[in-house]
């Protein structure tokens, strides 16, 4: 094992449970503090108000879980990346856990697809919800209103969905999964729920948990 040169490293971590309500900006601040607690000094930006530079790959919408978050950072001093998770984990808030740190082989911009799991809960489950949802999402065009900086406009999310599947309702619950576009365009999985609520309200769940489970490059190779 040889010491890594000081320089850019990448952290694979998960954000689950109560931590999924931490917003993207708050997560950045939280992680900076985690590094400071662990006494792993990060390189700071230059300028009037220097702060440790970190970069998160894909903003995770509030309320969604993930087991495959990536963050790039740079340490002040040389450090074996392997030991970073054990330094960080005792300093984490509940629900955030470092899985692995390593020197990255490619830029974060190479991420193209993300695989999500959705768990839909119904107080009164509709009949054959799984099949009906699968059918709904097989359409060539699914137009939903999307809130943007310039107001609300209609977007077609169908091209951003590479694949989708749903299983039948069991105990008031439908499990589903999808591979959706992570960049250009980035599709917020919440829009899948918006689409259901608008076009098929009877299939709209009373509660939905969305979990990001894997990220891929354009060729559907797992991205690290």
């Amino acid at each position: 094992m040889s010491a890594a040169r000081p320089g850019r490293l990448r952290l694979l971590f998960e954000k689950t449970g109560r931590a999924r309500y931490i917003s993207h900006l708050d997560l950045m601040q939280t992680l900076r503090r985690v590094f400071a607690r662990a006494d792993v000094a990060l390189r700071r930006t230059e300028g009037f108000n220097p702060h440790p530079y970190i970069s998160l790959a894909l903003p995770l919408p509030v309320g969604q879980e993930s087991v495959c978050e990536l963050m790039d950072f740079e340490t002040e001093a040389a450090i074996h990346p392997e030991i970073i998770p054990e330094l960080l984990n005792p300093k984490m808030p509940e629900g955030i856990r470092a899985l692995r740190a390593y020197a990255p082989a490619r830029a974060l911009s190479g991420i193209k697809w993300v695989e999500i799991r959705v768990s839909l809960e119904y107080d009164a489950p509709p009949r054959d919800a799984g099949a009906a949802l699968a059918e709904y999402f097989s359409a060539d065009s699914i137009v939903v209103p999307k809130r943007t900086k310039r107001g609300i406009r209609d977007v077609d999310i169908a091209p951003a969905i590479r694949s989708v599947r749903f299983s039948g309702a069991e105990a008031g619950r439908v499990e589903g999964g999808a591979v959706i576009s992570a960049s250009e365009p980035a599709l917020n999985p919440e829009l899948l729920l918006t689409a259901i609520a608008r076009d098929a309200p009877s299939l709209s769940p009373d509660y939905a948990l969305i979990r990001r489970v894997e990220i891929f490059d354009a060729d559907m190779n797992v991205f690290r």
Binding site: V34, V62, M92, P93, E94
Partner: peptide, 19 residues
């Protein structure tokens, strides 16, 4: 269920460091 609908839900969850 209700946390999905409110602003700044992180203030209602607990789970912070040193809790």
């Amino acid at each position: 269920r209700i946390l999905r609908t409110v602003r700044k839900p992180a203030r209602y969850t607990g789970g912070e460091y040193n809790e």
